[in-house]
Simulated assay, not measured.
Amino acid sequence: MKNKFLLLTWLLAVPLLWGGCDKPLFKTDEASIAQPDELPPITTTGEGTFACKINGVNWQRCGGGFLQSSIIGEWHPVYKIFSLQGLRSCEGFDDAVYINAFIDSIGLYPLEAGQYDDFNLECQDVLDQYFLLETADNWVEILNLNTDEFIVSGTFQCTLVHEGCGDTLFITDGRFDYDWAN
Rank of each mutant, 00 (worst) to 15 (best):
N58F: 00
D95Y: 04
F170S: 05
W75G: 11
F131G: 02
L84F: 13
L25R: 04
N182W: 12
I171A: 05
A96H: 10
E149P: 01
E163M: 10
N146P: 11
Q115T: 01
G19Y: 11
L67K: 13
L87G: 06
D37Y: 10
F170M: 00
F150E: 15
D167S: 01
L111M: 03
S83T: 02
I171C: 06
W75T: 02
I151Q: 02
L87S: 09
V14M: 12
N3Q: 09
L67P: 00
D117A: 05
S83N: 15
C62F: 07
N58K: 06
A181E: 06
E38L: 12
F156S: 10
I81M: 07
G154M: 07
T9I: 14
K4C: 10
K23D: 12
L145R: 04
Q129N: 14
Q68E: 04
I81G: 01
Y109V: 01
K4H: 12
F5R: 13
G92Y: 10
P36M: 04
N55T: 08
A136C: 04
G107S: 10
L25V: 04
A13S: 14
G86F: 05
L16R: 00
D125H: 15
E134Y: 03
C165M: 03
I81A: 05
V140A: 03
E74V: 03
L6D: 08
Y79I: 13
N3A: 14
Q85K: 05
K4N: 11
G46F: 11
C123E: 14
F26R: 01
Q35H: 08
D29F: 07
G20Q: 13
L11V: 13
F176V: 11
D125Q: 10
P24G: 05
S83L: 07
Y178R: 06
S83R: 08
K23P: 00
K2S: 10
T9V: 15
V126L: 07
L7P: 00
A136V: 04
A96T: 09
D179K: 12
F176E: 14
E91Q: 12
G48R: 04
S89K: 14
L39I: 04
F5L: 14
T168H: 00
Y116K: 09
D94H: 14
Q157N: 08
L12R: 07
D117Y: 14
G63N: 08
K53L: 02
G65S: 08
P24N: 13
